[in-house]
């Protein structure tokens, strides 16, 4: 785990994979469903809902965002950054790509 932190990995995940990355940093491409003061609710590329704890929601104005953050529970992430991904994103393509990046064939490329 310390090795992961040294290399500053933040694997791309969908909601189903969050449980495998408790306490680690991930990237979650998602659609913003609901914005609250300290938390937003998003839909991950596999359709699962995830709660994202945020510092400030002023930076979130895109429909789709990529949350970089630390996994707290299997459905909660504490955001370190939210990157705007625009108003149009093919979530099936995103999800298929994410699943491929976890394929053992590409282990040396993504982990």
């Amino acid at each position: 785990m310390s090795d992961d932190q040294d290399r500053q990995l933040s694997p791309r995940v969908n909601s189903a994979q969050l449980a495998n990355y408790l306490g680690k940093n991930v990237r979650l491409a998602c659609k913003v469903l609901n914005i609250d003061v300290t938390q937003i609710v998003v839909e991950a590329s596999d359709g699962g809902q995830v709660n994202v704890q945020i510092q400030s929601h002023s930076e979130i104005d895109d429909t789709y965002i990529e949350v970089v953050g630390k996994v707290q529970t299997p459905d909660t992430i504490r955001a370190l950054a939210c990157i705007g991904m625009g108003s149009d994103l093919d979530m099936k393509l995103v999800n298929d790509t994410i699943i491929l990046t976890h394929d053992p064939r590409f282990k040396t490329m993504f982990s």
Binding site: R12, Y64, L89, D90, T97, L100, T101, M109
Partner: peptide, 18 residues
């Protein structure tokens, strides 16, 4: 400018690697 390019790039790296 189009976020799909991020995923295109990932897929392209995998295609070229294979």
């Amino acid at each position: 400018s189009n976020s799909h390019e991020i995923y295109f790039h990932l897929l392209e790296t995998m295609t070229v690697y294979l």
